[in-house]
Design a protein around this nucleic acid. Sequence first.
DNA 1: GCCAACGTTGGC
DNA 2: GCCAACGTTGGC
Length: 154
Amino acid sequence: MSYWLLKSEPAGFSIDDLARSPGRTTAWDGVRNFQARNFIRDGMKIGDLAFFYHSSCAEPGIAGIVKIMRTAYGDATALDRASEHFDARSSSDEPIWYVVDVRLERKLARVLTLEKLKQHAASSLSSLPLLKRGNRLSVMPVTKHDWDFILALE
DNA sequence: GCCAACGTTGGC
DNA sequence: GCCAACGTTGGC
């Protein structure tokens, strides 16, 4: 079993939006970066856990934990001309972009802020991609060590 | 709104 | 395959 971190802008889709979704489950759609796509398509397995990270907002940080409920399948928004995520190169037979289904496990009592995480950037969390300079990946792996360390900060 | 960092595109 | 131009991300 593996651990991950998923970024979302709460103005677009927040952890509360997920909490209100049917079955507290959603397809994690709209990923349009190949490295992130590969993590989704090739790495994520049912039962894996991921941090739900709020980006581009007043208080960036980890807002909760989700579980992978279904492995990768084609991202329907890539086929929808009306969607901002439409991509004419993708088709249902040969998808370019993929989603997994995720279910909310729990919200953190309070957002574990980026500021807090950064306090450990030079030591315990030095391998966390999120804290690497210039990192923009919206989907990234988290080691078990980092996962456990971050949860202990809660 | 600014800007650094980085991915993608497209001409050659 | 190179690389400049461009677009996007995301913290501040």
